[in-house]
């Protein structure tokens, strides 16, 4: 009896169920397609990004050397060795110094140039192009040009100094100035990039705010900057600072080709240390430990940036 009722209910429910199955198979087919479409990307992501990321952390806990037949887990020994190594601390200190010089320099100059360009109508696109040019040009090629400009004997810089009656200097060969010379190149290259971000920020400030400020009595350019431009630009500025810091942490090209970290480690930076340990001495484990330190710095900066980047400009 109860069976019969159940059977009846089943019969009654059948068309509805079939309909549901149809709908389901429609989306199921589509979700199958979704997996197929995303699969290549996800596999490559696992292979080239997430796997290696886990790998670099794991590797930092081993004594693996490229070409060695075997390796063993050695816990935090690589880190102990690293923290005991004078070169690591020099490298970290130099990297932080590089960041501490290039970030304020490139951000302030980028902002200044953007404000100057935006303050008048003439030649805007010409200026923008010129200041952006260093961002475009292959850094390695331009680094070599800078090297020649800084040449102690035949370089343009010393030549100009001599013409002005000043003493020349071996900029890249002196441990006192090598890192600062690289900073100058870094600022030269990054200013245009920051300028473009600031210009985009400036353009998006509603024009009516300047009119309102004018009516409200902000008569000088400076007071309008304080009342409108600077606060409206604050999110962009934080963002640009974070980006510049991340990019500066990654400094490598100029160091590798111009100073090799020298003279006497005075321009040694983290990625260069990682490069020499990992790819010149093939001490993969130790190199991985250096990478992890680098990663910790950059990831915290990146997280900071994406938090700031997600923060909407407070105009609804």
């Amino acid at each position: 009896m109860s069976d019969a009722v159940a059977a009846l209910q089943e019969v009654a429910a059948a068309p509805r169920m079939r309909a549901r199955i149809l709908v389901k198979s429609g989306t199921a087919g589509r979700s199958g397609a979704a997996y197929a479409l995303a699969a290549p990307a996800l596999i490559l992501m696992l292979m080239m990004l997430l796997g290696p990321l886990a790998g670099v952390i794991a590797l930092s806990l081993t004594d693996y050397q490229l070409g060695a037949p075997s390796f063993s887990w050695i816990g935090l020994s690589n880190y102990q060795e690293m923290f005991a190594d004078r070169v690591f601390w020099i490298s970290l200190k130099n990297t932080l110094a590089y960041v501490a010089i290039v970030v304020p320099g490139a951000v302030a100059l980028g902002l200044g140039v953007a404000l100057l360009i935006q303050s008048g109508a003439g030649l805007r696109s010409l200026y923008r192009t010129v200041y952006f040019l260093p961002v475009m040009a292959t850094l390695i090629a331009m680094a070599i040009v800078w090297e020649f400009m800084l040449h102690p004997q035949f370089g343009l810089v010393n030549g100009l100094l001599r013409a002005a009656g000043l003493q020349g200097h071996s900029w890249l060969q002196d441990r006192g100035t090598a890192l600062y010379s690289l900073c100058v190149i870094g600022i030269w290259q990054a200013t245009g990039f920051n300028m473009v971000l600031f210009l985009a920020g400036l353009v998006s400030i509603p024009k009516h705010l300047y009119d309102a400020a004018e009516i409200d009595g902000a008569e000088s350019a400076w007071s309008r900057f304080g009342l409108v431009t600077w606060p409206m630009l604050a999110p962009v500025t934080l963002f640009v600072v974070a980006i510049s810091a991340i990019r500066s942490f990654q400094v490598f090209d100029t160091v590798q080709v111009l100073t090799k970290g020298g003279p006497s480690k005075s321009s040694e930076v983290l990625i260069y240390t990682m490069y020499t340990e990992g790819f010149e001495f093939f001490r993969s484990g130790y190199g991985a430990a250096v990478t992890v330190v680098f990663l910790a710095f950059v990831l915290s900066l990146t997280l900071l940036k994406s938090v700031l980047g997600r923060r909407e400009v407070h105009y609804a």
Binding site: L209, D211, I215, P231, M232, A234, Y315
Partner: peptide, 18 residues
């Protein structure tokens, strides 16, 4: 503009968002 001592209400209101 400020010395003319006129006040203006804008279409977009032009309030300082910060």
């Amino acid at each position: 503009p400020s010395a003319r001592n006129l006040a203006m209400v804008f279409q977009s209101y032009a309030l300082y968002p910060h």
